[in-house]
Structure formats: C-alpha cells, structure tokens
C-alpha cells in the first residue's frame, strides 16, 4: 500500500518499518526507564530511613553513656560541665514549648482572622493581591526573622517590660508567631474556600449576616482543615531553629518564665555544632538524642494533622 495515496516518492510506513531495527533498543529503554525512575523515587524513602536510622543509632550510643531515666526525668541540662554534668531534656523541652505556645497565641487569632477575611469578606482582586504577599512572608529566610527579633522586637519589648533580658522567650516566640501566621492563614483559607457556596447562600437567605455565616456555617464546616493547618504550623514552630538560636539565648531552664534567657532543643543542637565538641564525646551524641526527641515531637504533630484532615474530611 501507500504509494498511490499521495505523490510521495517514498512510503513512510516502509521507512518506519526500516527504523524498526532500532526496535530492540527502544524496547530496552522502555524497560529501563521505569526502573531508573523508581530508583529516584526510592531516594525519598531512603532519606526517611536514613534520618530514622541515624537518629536511633546515635541516640542509642548516647544512652550507653547517659541513662534513659536521667535523660527523661532529670530537671537539669548542664552538658558542658566536666564534674557535675546533667542530661535532663526537660529544660530544653520547656524552652521549646514556651516559644511554641507564644507563637501559637500570636499566630492562631491573626491567622484565622486573616483566613476569614480573605475567604468571606475580601473581593477576588484583594485575595489575589494579598495571598502572594503572605506567601512572600512565608518565604523569608528564618535567619532574617532572627535578625528582626534580636534587633527590632527585643529592644521594643524591653521598653515595655524593663525586666526583659536581651535573650528571652517572648521575642522569638512572637516572631515565630509572625512567621507561621501566613501558613495558618493560607491553609485555613483553602479549607474555608472549599466550603460550597450553597451552604453560605442557605444561611444568607435566612437573613444571617456575613459574620454569622462565617462563624456558624463556614468555620464549623471547615474545622478539620483549620485544625490541621494549626497543628502543622505549631509543628513548624517547634522545629524552628535560627530565630531561637539568635534571639532566645543558651540557658536551659525548667520554668514558665518568658522574660529570661532560654534554650530550645534546636538551639542546643546549634550551640554544640558551632562549638568544638569532638566526634565521639557524650556531647556529640547528645545532639542526636535531642534531635530524635525533636523529630518525634514534629512527627507526631504531622501525623496528627494528616489524621485530622483525613478522618474528618467533609464530603460536600
């Protein structure tokens, strides 16, 4: 066939058939490619395995030097003392929690209010302008926020609270709150925007105000997405490093004072990494034990967020 079909002086099908001697090569490519792609996909799995394995192995070594009971229950963290060193993680956890709670207190109301404004009140144009700006806010490197906390927020706070130390929990807490606000705002706005308009219209037609619709209809309908966004944001706050390393100080304390110098789990790892704790020392292994604790905290929060958004997903 083929020749009578056009004025072509050649048959394309015939040429294709000739090229088919490359077919074996083509078939090989078709078989090799998925395998290579699978290998790249496995890298992400290996990363997780690597993280978990590294943390567990080095933490295990740490526990041959320091008992688990001491780690979990001792009230003091004095790793650098030669004579009466103590490795109780509680002071570091307390530092982390102080900062995270302050961050949550700042971020939840502001983030939710922004989400409601963007989803329920703002015009399309406003939303399209503001959302990217919030994303920019989320994309600023944390070291910049750290600089901001130390050189701007702390001095202002010290005007108001004279007893505030230069390094404290309040200032980094507030700045981390500012940092995670866009995350809550953006993710909650997504959850609220996906509530179907018919539900809003039903309430509006009964004479409800926009505020009542937002609080009594949209918020309950989107609650799982909103809670998930808050949990994720707090998880970010727990793992945040540079802001607390710059503005939080390096004094592990087990108390609820927010005006004094603190140390979070992340800041401790930074402190040790910058110092000259030699490979193989107890201090060297302690950063893995602290890192593992931090990892567990954030992992549980992330799984919780996933569970909430899956378990309570509304079917509209």
């Amino acid at each position: 066939m083929a020749l009578q079909k056009s004025s072509n002086t050649f048959s394309i099908q015939e040429m294709i058939r000739e090229k088919k001697n490359k077919k074996a090569k083509k078939l090989q490519i078709e078989k090799i490619v998925p395998f290579l792609l699978l290998l790249t996909a496995i890298v992400s799995v290996l990363t997780t395995i690597g993280i978990v394995f590294t943390l567990i192995a080095e933490t295990f070594t740490f526990f041959t030097k320091v008992s688990i009971t001491e780690f979990l229950t001792a009230q003091k963290w004095y790793p650098f003392s030669e004579t009466n060193g103590a490795f109780g993680i509680l002071p570091l956890i307390s530092g982390t929690l102080k900062v995270s709670i302050i961050a949550a207190i700042v971020a939840i109301p502001i983030g939710l209010a922004s989400a409601i404004f963007l989803s329920e009140y703002a015009t399309d144009r406003t939303r399209r302008t503001i959302k990217p700006i919030l994303e920019v806010l989320a994309g600023i490197p944390t070291i910049v926020y750290g600089f901001f906390a130390l050189t701007f927020v702390t001095p202002i706070l010290r005007e108001v609270i004279p007893s505030l130390e230069i390094f404290n929990a309040l200032s980094p807490g507030i700045v981390i709150g500012i940092m995670i606000t866009p995350m809550i705002a953006s993710l909650s706005e997504d959850a609220m925007s996906s509530v179907p308009n018919s539900m809003r219209e039903g309430a509006l037609a009964l004479g409800a105000t926009k505020f009542e619709v937002a609080i009594k209809v949209v918020l309950p309908a989107a609650i799982s997405g909103i809670i998930a966004s808050i949990v994720l944001a707090i998880s970010r706050a727990i793992g945040e490093t540079m802001i607390v390393a710059v503005a939080g100080g390096s004094t592990p304390n087990l108390n609820w004072d927010v005006t004094g110098s603190i140390q979070t789990m992340t800041a401790y790892i930074v402190q040790v990494s910058q110092g000259d704790a030699g490979y193989g020392t107890t201090i060297y292994y302690s950063i893995y034990a602290v890192g593992f604790t931090l990892f567990l905290f954030t992992l549980i929060m992330n799984l919780l967020a996933q569970f909430i958004s899956r378990r309570f997903r509304e079917e509209y």
Binding site: T47, G50, I51, T54, L55, E58, L232, S235, R236, I238, G239, E240, T241, T266, I269, V270, S273, I287, Y288, G291, L294, F295, T298, L299, M301, N302
Partner: peptide
C-alpha cells in the same frame, strides 16, 4: 514536615 535541623544531623 521534618525540621530542617534534623536534615543537618542526617
């Protein structure tokens, strides 16, 4: 969702 500092340990 893993904190960046943990990647540092890895």
């Amino acid at each position: 969702g893993v904190p960046s500092i943990v990647f540092g340990l890895l």
